[in-house]
Design a binder for these strands. Structure first.
Length: 156
DNA sequence: GCCAACGTTGGC
DNA sequence: GCCAACGTTGGC
């Protein structure tokens, strides 16, 4: 990245596991458990402290964007990859050469009303948003500025 | 719980 | 390098 322009992201979490309310309570959290290379690469190579993050509730009723956070750390090794026998253990990883990398995100706000997936789909201005594409299941994905600004104007 | 879509693994 | 089998994601 040579540009210093603000960037926007969307990060998915199952609220039964970790919700926007959990983030509101914790204020900051390490985004552990990402085990997809493309998602990791966004965090490792492209995120910058201060970038905006749309916090998306997946596998919930209804799914949708629950609030806003910001990237609050440089990338670093996901500690859960070193937890031998744990769900997120990565036997190939060493401290010197970690495989999975994450960032911290900080709570910004919870939307008064969750912007449901149906609502997103119904908004013509968001038609090209990645999260709305069929079969799209990346848990960390970029959001175009035009879409991000539209969403932010919408929630006021 | 179902299942389509997608990513990863591993035999060849 | 191909691709079938398998595992996961995530909406419904």
């Amino acid at each position: 990245m040579t540009s210093s322009a603000v960037q926007y992201w969307l990060m998915k979490s199952e609220p039964d596991t970790y919700s926007i309310d959990d983030l509101a309570r914790d204020r900051v959290t390490a985004w552990t458990g990402v085990r997809n290379y493309q998602a990791r690469n966004f965090m490792r190579d492209q995120m910058r402290v201060g970038d905006w993050v749309f916090f998306y509730h997946s596998n919930s009723t209804p799914p949708g964007i629950a609030g806003l956070a910001r990237v609050s750390s440089a990338p670093y090794a996901d500690p859960t990859q070193f937890e031998k026998g744990g769900d997120y253990a990565e036997p190939r990883a060493t401290r010197e050469k970690p495989i999975w990398v994450l960032v911290d995100i900080a709570f910004e706000r919870k939307f008064e009303k969750l912007i449901s997936l149906d609502t997103l789909r119904a908004d013509a201005a968001l038609k090209e948003m990645l999260v709305l594409k069929k079969g799209q299941r990346l848990s960390v994905q970029p959001v175009e500025g035009v879409h991000a600004r539209h969403l932010l104007a919408r929630v006021g």
